[in-house]
Design a binder for these strands. Structure first.
Length: 525
RNA sequence: CGGGAAGUGGCGCAGCUUGGUUAGCGCGCAGCGUUCGGGACGCUGAGGUCGCGGGUUCAAAUCCCGCCUUCCCGACCA
């Protein structure tokens, strides 16, 4: 984490990348491997057991996090087969395993959204430019990120259309049409969609030009109702999902005015700490005041027969969460997925198909599935054991059960959990319930570990200098009164931003100018 | 968008400075055999419009121009 290990000669790829002047084969690689073997990252005095010694002798599968975190991230995404870059800059191909994770996320988030009474709908990807221009702050904030379509059917369009960067404007138009009376409120809508924003520096999942998300749009009769709903989504949908399912501890708070969504009167955020100490905004929920209601004439007749403007909100979480999941839990051996999002919770690996191990493994998979566990069989016995073990570790599958002749002779199984070192031997009987309990345990322990790391990486400070210093490796909490607008400028000079404002107890402020607020500052993705 | 680096079989690279018959290597992949409880080994084999488009030349992976893409650093963002 403290980045800046002495620049090692060439810790990775000794097998081939070392050669430059000499022959690229035998001799040089032999000498270089003997030279770099002792230098191989001291994976930790903690790394016990015989297995890790054997592992260290080989080139690491992924670039170690401590050596180059961004590189590690890319390696992890590639080796776990989550995604590839698309052919157009900033676009992303999500591979089946990555998509399976996203599907799990969608299912969990969607369920929580519906629990608020919100209904799903779908709005078009193309938006007339004139719509977007109706809300002044909104255009100003977004115009530099537009992808604009100027031609259709080979002819220039009379009015260019924008590929949606977000859909407040189209929702606004139709909300105005659908809302007539206070009896129509609140109007609670959501859509799952793709959006496009011009990006200067794309990174898979974290920042791509096209990304997938859910965007909720609601209209309310009163400001209080809108504010309450936006906060409800923040906590009951997003925070609950992130903590409970993703095992990612998040800080919730209010954005400063400069970090606010274009067109919003209040932006609330969920911020998580990645393993390199940087912050990632995992989701947002906005109060839009009457800004969009005015721009799109979203009005209703109240119970006195008077015309009133609505109060609207919008909120979203995106595929970026996949990146957050990787960077929160992943280690040098790959992903570590919390069981509740893991597409595969348990892999049952046939070591060798002898003594009926293959058949036994099939039965275990069936038993697990019957117990409600997402279990997968790995019977590729023509691939070496180590190879397969490494594959599943890269993919972050929480539990691996190994079934081989040796286990069957003892009527037992070998169990390996991904969240920490070591193997256990468990009896063959009662695998289903035992594993189900274990998954809960792993879920809890990943959350616990992430919490400890976040709390340990957060410093309480009182000066901007100390905040900048602390932000080199983690978060800093500093009285908002010690920062202010000029303070934000100073922090920005060091690549540090105010991630959110909180009350001293971590609660959500009702306004920016509440006394005694605390600013959480950090470097961010 | 500014600064830096780089695009050569799926991946990682060499070759380019001093253009010249069949463009190499490691990993991966396929077949066979030996193996098998932590990325196995041997043999055989498949796979390349050298990012794209122009130009120079008898001849271009190699030289020149333009574009695209990726990575790192900054400013913008979920």
């Amino acid at each position: 984490m403290t980045t800046r290990p002495p620049p090692r000669p060439r810790p990775t790829g000794p097998p081939c990348s070392t050669s430059r002047a000499s022959t690229p084969t035998g001799p040089s690689s032999a000498s270089s491997s003997s030279a770099s073997a002792p230098a191989a990252e001291p994976v930790g005095p903690a790394g016990p057991g015989a297995g890790s010694v054997a592992r260290m002798a080989k080139a690491p599968i992924l670039t170690p996090q401590a050596e180059d975190f961004p590189r590690w991230y890319q390696d992890a995404v590639a080796k776990a087969e989550l995604a590839d870059n698309g052919p157009v800059r900033g676009t992303m191909v999500i591979r089946p395993y990555g998509w399976a994770i996203w599907e799990r996320m969608q299912a969990e988030v969607d369920e929580r959204i519906k629990a608020t009474g919100t209904q799903n709908a779908y709005f078009p990807v193309l938006i007339p430019e004139s719509y977007i221009e109706r809300e002044k702050a909104h255009v100003e904030g977004f115009s530099h990120e537009f992808w604009t379509v100027t031609h259709g059917g080979g002819k220039e369009l009379e009015e260019p259309v924008v590929v949606r960067p977000t859909s407040e404007t189209v929702f606004g138009i139709y909300m105005a049409k659908w809302v007539q009376s206070y009896r129509d409120l609140p109007l609670l809508l959501n859509q799952w969609a793709n959006v496009m924003r011009w990006e200067l520096r794309p990174r898979l999942f974290l920042r791509t030009s096209e990304f997938l998300w859910q965007e909720g749009h609601t209209a309310h009769a009163t400001e209080a109702d809108a504010a309450a709903f936006a906060a409800r989504v923040l906590h009951d949908v997003y925070e609950d999902f992130m903590v409970d399912v993703l095992a990612i501890p998040v800080l919730t708070g209010r954005k400063t005015s400069r970090e606010r969504f274009p067109g919003a009167t209040n932006t609330m955020t969920l911020e998580a700490m990645m393993r390199d100490g940087k912050a990632l905004q995992m989701g947002t929920s906005h109060e839009l005041g009457r800004n969009f209601a005015e721009a799109f004439d979203i009005r209703y007749l109240d119970d006195n027969g008077d015309q009133q403007l609505c109060w609207t909100t919008s909120w979203g979480v995106s595929t970026r969460m996949v990146g957050g999941l990787i960077m929160t839990h992943g280690d040098d051996r790959g992903l570590r997925l919390p069981p509740r999002v893991a597409p595969v919770q348990v892999v049952v690996l046939v070591v060798r198909d002898e003594q009926g191990a293959g058949e036994r493994a099939r039965l275990i998979v069936e038993e697990l599935r019957a117990a409600g566990v997402r279990a997968e069989l790995d019977a590729r016995v023509d691939t070496s054991f180590g190879r397969r073990a490494v594959d599943w570790e890269l993919k972050g599958v929480p539990v691996r059960l190994e079934v081989g002749p040796r286990d069957l002779a003892n009527m037992s199984l070998t169990l390996v959990r991904r969240d920490h070192e070591g193997k256990d031997t468990i009896p063959l009987d009662g695998v289903g319930s035992r594993v189900a309990d274990l998954l809960d345990d792993i879920q809890a322990s990943l959350l616990h570990e992430a919490r400890l790391r976040r709390d340990g990486g957060t410093a309480e400070v009182t000066s901007l200098d100390d905040a900048v210093e602390a932000a080199r490796t983690g978060f800093a909490r500093i009285p908002w009164s010690a920062v202010g607008d000029e303070g934000e400028d100073r922090l920005a000079e060091h690549g540090v931003t105010v991630r959110c404002l909180q009350r001293a107890d971590g609660g959500l402020p009702a306004a920016d100018d509440e006394p005694d607020l605390v600013a959480v500052v950090a470097r961010a993705y």
